[in-house]
Write a protein that binds this DNA or RNA. Structure first.
Lengths: 253, 253
DNA sequence: TAGTGGTCTAGACCACTGA
DNA sequence: CAGTGGTCTAGACCACTAG
């Protein structure tokens, strides 16, 4: 990466910088390589550190870079494809999924959740926390809301809380016959608890996947899963393919 | 919104500010209402404008605020749900979709696209530009790549380019029998051309939906659609529901 | 303890909008 | 034109990591 000068164009400096760095990443860096620190980079490009950081933030948002406080900035590997909404007619907790139950409680849900579930706002529902791992890295944190009416025979559980209780709730859920599931994806920022579980700072960009599990004509469970937006590509439907990765821009032509 | 003091907590100021503003939005503002300008807000909370802006950026990312240069900051309406990957076995351009053909050319695609299509990097493919409108607002910009082999009878077209040509390409595509489509969603930032079409600044966060259309055992078309992440909630599968909107936090309990 | 990225400040000027 | 958000600077200090 040379000490290229920034021309005076009507384009913002940070945006031009992003492009220059992006091309440098394609041609002169390999995955996992450590970039020079922000102060050096800023000096090399003749901009303030804040401006340089704006460019790095863009590239991090695009999944090209990974930054860790106290460590440095490294070139990120291509995003990992994670299947969402496959296993079309299977409940969460089905054998073979890569979700891991963490905890479970019985408490009144947020008002918005109660609205979707069609329960009274004060009525407690089972809340199961799960986390999803891929290649040893945490990629998603989930909150599953299950009204008591969906798991009527749960009264005789032995575990009062914790992962064991979570597994018990999921096991009970399987007894219902799932009709269909409805998914929605939107951009969000990680709340403190999710951020901790995803090994990110609060406010990190996440893809929020909301899933309504419908059984017996009503919403039997509601899942709100937050995926790390920097490292994940969510795949829907059939196979898990569609590998559009960055690379030298249109070498063709 | 009072002139609440920020306590000295180990929490970043901008994050705390985000929370305070978020709650104020829930309780004291209505959709479309204009917030005080950034300099006033910063003064009111006793922080630098840059810090206040960090908080506003978070809220904009979450779809709570809308900011326009020269105008001001307004309270954003709830995100609009847009169906993606429905019409399970239908080609793009099917009657009734809300996509609008803009242009079409025949040119060599980016290397990554050629890789997915399985064409030679130098082989030109049909590139159709479309834009999607909802409620009079642009929500997505799309580039559709269609190898000539998918539309073999297109030689005798009358329109050399433009929307008419785009429609002709899409019409020809319908003759193939679609087997399935594969979708992937990831976070990206709008390139200059997409940003213009989406009425946003370059670098704005977008949800990139990549769709592989499979027919006759091979990829017959590839779509790369960028949706405005601030205003859109993408829905997959069956109905277009799942309305989890913000609101006064857990009034329940 | 030295070095990293993360936060924060107090300015300045620019680009755009609408009256 | 005045007022808005967008960009940029040159500093400072903090939180975290690793040797």
């Amino acid at each position: 990466m040379g000490t290229t000068q920034l021309e005076s164009v009507p384009e913002p400096k940070y945006w031009h910088l992003r492009t220059v760095l992006s091309e440098a990443l394609d041609s002169e860096f390999t995955v996992g390589e450590i970039l020079p620190n922000e102060r050096d980079l800023a000096a090399r490009f003749g901009v303030a550190r804040a401006t340089l950081r704006q460019a790095l933030e863009q590239l991090e948002l695009e999944g090209r870079l990974q930054r860790r406080r106290g460590v440095g900035t490294t070139v990120a590997p291509p995003r990992v494809g994670v299947a969402v909404g496959t296993e079309q007619h299977a409940w969460p907790g089905t054998a073979g999924d890569d979700w891991q139950p963490v905890d479970s409680t019985l408490a009144a849900p947020p008002a918005a959740v109660a609205g979707v579930l069609g329960t009274d706002g004060d009525e407690p529902v089972h809340t199961v926390r799960r986390s999803r791992m891929t290649h040893g890295q945490p990629v998603a944190a989930e909150l599953l809301y299950i009204p008591s009416s969906s798991v009527p025979d749960l009264s005789a559980i032995d575990a009062p809380s914790g992962a064991a209780r979570a597994r018990a709730v999921l096991r009970e859920l399987q007894r219902l016959e799932l009709e269909r599931q409805e998914n929605a994806v939107e951009l969000g920022s990680a709340r403190a608890d999710d951020a901790k579980e995803l090994d990110r700072l609060p406010g990190a960009p996440v893809l929020v996947v909301t899933t309504r599990y419908v059984a017996e004509g009503r919403v039997a469970a509601l899942s709100v899963a937050t995926y790390r937006a920097d490292t994940c590509r969510l795949t829907f439907g059939d196979s898990g393919g569609v590998e559009i990765h960055h690379g030298p821009q249109s070498r063709a032509s």
